[in-house]
Design a binder for these strands. Structure first.
Lengths: 277, 277
DNA sequence: CTAATAGTGTCTATTAGACAGTATGTT
DNA sequence: AACATACTGTCTAATAGACACTATTAG
């Protein structure tokens, strides 16, 4: 096998690209956003929900189960490009925040054959979706309850409720990294429950040391709305003065205000990073 | 193409796993450790260096260039298992800290064919390597100089010096994530300069909010040595009292001491996480 | 004694947490 | 007027940065 060649060209000409068995690569996209819930009282603000876009499978494998939007990576496109293509197919949105999350490479992830999946996470402002959703796609609100050993995730699109239970075990004593294991998942295809849990965990982490939330916000927003988004993702209430201190230098006050029911109107802000009007 | 089947079994039996062109998957491992440098003066401590294990390629492609230890992922093993296997092949070490870094999926990474690579990062205590290194492998000390736009990395194994220059451009305004582009790389194969830069950046980040350093430390160490390791990875000096405050609850004082030249001997500590004697 | 590291005490500056209070709209 | 949110002031607790000081060794 260790034949000698005299040049790189010569080697490449003779190379048998099939000496190792090849495999299939897909990418699955976690499309996160924020949804408005109901208003229980004319004075109160709309409730907000953290939500994710899922697609109902209309063929085997996992027929009729829900899964993340995804698809095969083509031989002539980068994984990044594949993710961008799939996101655009699903939402018709371009230039969207997207980052690689993790590559899931267990042997029996897919009953058809050996399939590796590189998951991406993308954050969008749902209101930018002009058209209605692609057929079979639906937004699910996400409720997360987490204790020391388990993550309980409930996905709800108004019609269906998907309960997930995932066990977490510390991978090693020197990090905060967990190994996730499915304890309950009856309605999601593949290992997408684990993928979703990983994405939620990443987002929860990143929200406190980056500006990624703003990818989910409309151009103008009130600080109350922004705080609501932080709260639903972090899963806890924040104190107003502390919150305002922290985001003060990230946002810019505009002279617009939002009147929003039986209470004092609030100023609209915009993200300082944005330069567009 | 959307034929209908009556069951998952029926579908799987008929499934043509070659309807999408398959590709090859490799994993490359960043094996980081800490090396002792020379002692310039009987009073001084040994200098320490941050270092990485590279392998000289003895065949095409990239013949005679250095690269990360790596190999093809087999059709019947998970990516994690492949990474563990390759690490063991190279170091004969087992149960070593290892975490997935990133999946590199550009189209022309490899001149032979389409190859995706999932990189892993592993941290070891070099002194645990009983035997000599695998043939063609060598430890390179890493020196990093970083400014606003570029990362200058110098790798040095005592015989060869490999200079790398990598341009960084912010991927989007809401994060701290950079897109890396090669400006200078004459001696490393593939895109391994970018992989190494990503790994260094990840390690630099994680060292401050996890306990991963201890994976590179021997069982007993002085706080001075531990601080040296933090300093070479972070690339800056730390203040003693602040450093000691921060690691105080992570380490446990032993009754051993280390005599180390013309100055006060220092107490040996061990990581609290470890339970072995 | 000297140069080097080992190790501690303490002051200050910065940041995070908590709570109380004032402001202002709709019904 | 009442309620809900908007927004600010300020006290306190916790943490990080800085510096000065003492301790201890080989040569």
């Amino acid at each position: 096998m260790l034949e000698q060649y005299n040049s790189e060209e010569e080697f490449l000409k003779a190379y048998d690209s099939n000496q190792y068995e090849k495999l299939s690569l897909t990418t699955d996209i976690l499309i996160f956003s924020v949804s408005d819930g109901s208003r229980t009282n004319y004075r109160k603000l709309n409730e907000k929900y953290f939500s994710i876009l899922l697609v109902k499978r209309d063929n085997y494998p996992f027929k009729d189960k829900w899964c993340l939007p995804g698809g095969f990576v083509r031989i002539d496109e980068s994984i990044d490009d594949a993710a961008i293509r799939i996101l655009a197919d699903e939402t018709n949105l371009h230039n969207i925040f997207m980052e690689q999350l993790y590559t899931f490479g267990n042997v029996n992830r897919d009953p058809r054959m050996r399939v590796i999946s590189t998951a991406y996470m993308s954050l969008i402002d749902k209101n930018k979706l002009e058209d209605k959703l692609v057929k079979n796609a639906s937004w699910f609100n996400i409720i997360v309850l987490e204790d020391k050993d388990c993550i309980h995730i409930t996905l709800d699109n108004g019609t269906e409720t998907i309960p997930l239970i995932i066990k977490k075990t510390l991978k090693e004593q020197t990090t905060d990294r967990y190994q996730y294991t499915t304890l309950k998942n009856d309605y999601l295809a593949f290992d997408h429950d684990i993928v979703i849990a990983s994405g939620i965990s990443r987002l929860k982490n990143k929200i406190s040391y980056t500006d990624i939330v703003f990818n989910m916000m409309p151009q103008y927003f009130t600080l109350g709305e922004l705080q609501q988004v932080y709260e639903i993702i972090l899963g806890k209430k924040l104190l107003d003065p502390a919150f305002r201190r922290i985001i003060a230098d990230k946002v810019e006050k505009t002279n617009k205000t939002k009147v929003n029911g039986g209470h004092r109107p609030s100023a609209l802000f915009k993200y300082k990073g944005h330069n567009d009007v």
